[in-house]
Simulated assay, not measured.
Amino acid sequence: MKYVFLCWLTLCTTYSALAQRLPGFDGLDMNLSTLSRLSNAKTRSISPENFTGERGKGGMADPVKQKGQRNVANAANEARDLGQGWKVNPFIIVEKGETVTIAEMEGPGAIQQIWMTPTGNWRYSILRFYWDDEKEPSVEVPVGDFFGMAWNEYALLNSLAVTVNPGSAFNCYWKMPFRKRCKITLENQNPDESMRLYYQINYTLTAIGEDEAYFHAQFRRSNPTKGSLHTILDGVQGKGQYVGTFMAVGTRNNGWWGEGEIKFFMDGDQQFPTISGTGTEDYFCGSYNFENKKTHQYEAFSTPYAGLHQVIRPDGLYKSQQAFGMYRWHIMDPVRFEKELKVNIQDLGWRSGGRYYPQQSDIATVAYWYQREPHARFPKLPSRDELEVPR
């Protein structure tokens, strides 16, 4: 224990010393060892109570003057006895088929934390982030998958980059710098119901260094996998670093499903990759089937950098198959590439005679990475029917 503490203390001290020597450090990269340092950065926050994030403009909705106006005083009735300044518009309504802009901010600056509680079908709610003046999004992901909740069911997730807390509270701590401006939209593709959305986007206005890259996240689904292979990411062009994977697996057969290896093809790799994993549970920092050897059950876990946080078991009725959610954040070990990157994972189980079984699972992933702009155009997002989780 003493050794672990000393290692942690050394890491914090080293990080603090490095941060003090970094040119342009302005309070953007914070940890416990740097929180006492003052900076010229300005803190701002966007929510339904302050759509613009402007200084001194929060909580201004009037339940009397704005009653009946959509997304301006949604809690006017509840606040009718208290008046302005008393939780008049804490949420917005996103109607069926509607896309709303939930945040716009002028840079330079960086998003530091996002919290939201979306209702409805999380796979039908699409988040898109646009940096500076780009026309195509750098983030295009169903909100559930972005926060590790692919199966539209809550599961506790406790990591450094993403947390999902009781009450289905979605939190993101990925740093997202921008130089000119940022726009975030949310599309409700659900044909059956509107969405109620509480949210808060906390950001800072500060100088952004030349070496700062832009955050990207891309969703892909293979249902079923073709050739027992799922592509996590492909077509990335430019210089950057891969920082995380979320993967949801829906099985279609009995037995262990996670023998497949992950492969990182970078900077000219052709038939063989530079980085090859040794198995699915190995990549997600587990071992031997994620199995508790005493109970002979899958054992869910959630740690700062990796986890199998969701295990959905058959219930004897409509949930006839197992489903899983897992994540691996490359925070301490980003996968750096100079020119290009492709990532895929094999879909393998076991069959008779101790042989690998090429499976046809339902696999959905989100890839998280940073790179210089411009980025290659994303593949077209699957249709609503192709996104659907029929559970």
Rank of each mutant, 00 (worst) to 15 (best):
V4M: 13
T10S: 14
L11P: 05
T13Y: 12
A17T: 12
A17F: 13
L18H: 10
L28V: 11
L28I: 11
M30Q: 15
M30F: 14
L32V: 13
R37Q: 15
L38P: 05
S39L: 05
N40H: 14
A41M: 08
T43G: 02
T43I: 12
N50P: 02
N50G: 02
G58T: 07
V64Q: 13
V64H: 12
K65D: 08
N71A: 02
A73S: 09
A76Q: 03
E78V: 13
R80Y: 12
R80P: 05
R80I: 15
L82N: 12
G83D: 05
E95S: 10
G97C: 04
T101D: 01
A103G: 08
A103F: 00
Q112V: 08
T117M: 12
I126A: 03
K135G: 10
K135E: 14
V139N: 01
V139E: 09
G148V: 02
G148F: 06
N152F: 02
E153F: 07
N165L: 15
N171G: 11
N171M: 13
C172N: 07
K183R: 10
D192I: 10
I201E: 01
T204Q: 09
T206N: 10
T206K: 05
E212L: 09
A213K: 15
R220T: 10
R221E: 09
L229S: 13
L229R: 15
H230A: 08
L233Y: 09
G235F: 04
G238E: 00
K239E: 14
K239W: 10
V243I: 08
T245V: 14
F246D: 08
G258P: 01
E261M: 14
I262D: 02
F264K: 07
D269N: 10
P273S: 08
S276F: 13
T280C: 14
Y288V: 11
T303N: 14
Q310E: 12
I312K: 03
G316E: 03
Q322V: 11
A323Q: 05
G325H: 00
Y327M: 01
W329V: 00
D333Y: 03
R336F: 11
V343G: 03
I345N: 05
Q346R: 11
L348R: 05
S352K: 13
S352I: 11
S352Q: 12
G354F: 14
I363D: 08
W369S: 07
H375E: 10
R377N: 08
P379E: 06
P379I: 04
L381E: 06
S383K: 03
L387N: 04
R391N: 15
R391Y: 15
R391G: 15
